[in-house]
Design a protein around this nucleic acid. Structure first.
Lengths: 246, 246
DNA sequence: GCATCCCTTTGATCTGCGTCAAAACCGCGA
DNA sequence: TCGCGGTTTTGACGCAGATCAAAGGGATGC
């Protein structure tokens, strides 16, 4: 079974253009979007920005310093620790995603969040949250955020619990594609921001199997892969893989 | 891969003693626990009780009739539909659990909830919810409920994504044990309320593998199994299975 | 430029679990 | 009480994917 590789330090934080349009926190996050009366609760958005280099932890499982984070730029992964010391990646996060909500249950994070590259996130500490959520609109928003995350995780558990290797990798590519399309980018051409090892860990496969499966898709002319660059030629072919059990 | 068997009708709803002590909805649920001012929002608890026979659906994936349900008696399973028509069990629910929160994201349920035997649940429709949650204490409570569920699902995804068959079954038994202990029952002796097929589907294994693994545990004198009755002789042995990778 | 390190690809072999099969068991209704 | 349908157990066999191994990129530092 693939293990998560040793984390690396990056040379420096990366300069970035950061927008707030597609952010999952939406009105929960920063001043501009908030009802006027709530402006005073918030420091300037920039004060709450956090920059991380590749391999740095946003938080670790067990941390009681809670809060919800919105990814502004860059990419992260969420890893849950196993009893044998390994870690399993249960989610990837890109621009606009919310991270850290699993801490709302126990009051401590149950997973690590690790930057995959230079990235920037927005934080709202829980204390601010509590006050904010007295406002019904924000409360509904957070509930939806949590509900979506829960449904996503249920679907992921079903994928790794029942599908074949080809189906898992196809699902992964289709989800990446849909995610980029949702953010306004091409659904046919994108760059994988994680290693084969990370993909394997996420999907419950070895990195060799991930690599082989991508090569197989390419040999069928369904996709073209060159390193982390992916070009999907035949979305329907990948989808039809999922329609027949086995 | 195991599929969920055809649902059966049961002869009748089962007479039950129903208590509200350990219920996950807690103050969110019924009149007794609520702040006095909120009593008027609620009909009598009994009006909101729902009885189900074995195999009956509490709700189905796609239902827009939302609400949160608390299990008062009996057992249910949550199943997410796969693209190939199969369903995968992602959770079991017993007395005191909250069910249906994955609907808070999209406004529609993303999984089925099916009764495993005669059971009884309490409903709060979303509309009531919305009003209730304007009260900070209830809002925090729901947030914790959702956060716990999310963390639980992350852990489950990690289990089915990385562990061996023996480790998955051991984890399952340990979780059952802990669940019963938490509810005030024995952690060493309990009755499995689902079939081998359901366990396999939940763990991403075939029912044959589940059966074989239980037999193996028994042959090591770690447990005794007779049908659905389980007696755990050696919790530590099961736990130590999880400490060594592979 | 070259060397180093890590990531990725591809091949060969091994094995845990799925699949197929059959018998035993258990609850239920007649 | 018996017979029946569904569930569970156990066995034999095969395969998808893990493991072991080695060679080929592609980035980064000197």
């Amino acid at each position: 079974m693939a293990s998560i590789r040793t984390q690396k330090r990056d040379k420096a934080a990366v300069p970035m253009q950061v927008t707030c349009g597609p952010c999952a926190l939406g009105t929960l996050c920063h001043a501009e979007g908030l009802p006027f009366a709530f402006h005073s609760l918030f420091p300037l958005a920039d004060e709450k920005r956090i920059r991380l280099g590749a391999g740095e932890f946003l938080f670790r499982a067990g941390d009681t310093q809670m809060g919800i984070y919105a990814v502004k730029a860059g990419f992260l992964k969420s890893c849950v620790p196993l009893t044998d010391g390994r870690r399993n990646i249960v989610a990837f996060h890109a621009m606009g995603d919310a991270v850290g909500m699993d801490a709302l249950g126990r009051g401590a994070h149950s997973s690590d969040a690790v930057a995959l590259n230079g990235c920037e996130v927005c934080l709202i500490p829980l204390a601010k949250f509590e006050k904010l959520l007295e406002h019904p609109a924000e409360s509904v928003h957070l509930r939806q955020l949590l509900g979506r995350e829960l449904a996503r995780m249920e679907a992921h558990a079903a994928v790794v619990g029942t599908l074949s290797a080809k189906q898992r990798v196809a699902t992964f590519l289709l989800n990446m594609s849909a995610g980029w399309e949702m953010r306004g980018y091409s659904k046919h051409a994108f760059v994988l921001f994680m290693s084969r090892d990370d993909i394997g860990n996420f999907l419950g496969l070895t990195f060799e199997t991930v690599s082989r499966t991508l090569s197989y898709f390419q040999s069928n002319n369904w996709i073209a892969v060159k390193g982390k660059n992916v070009l999907i030629h035949d979305l329907k072919a990948l989808q039809s893989l999922l329609e027949h059990s086995g």
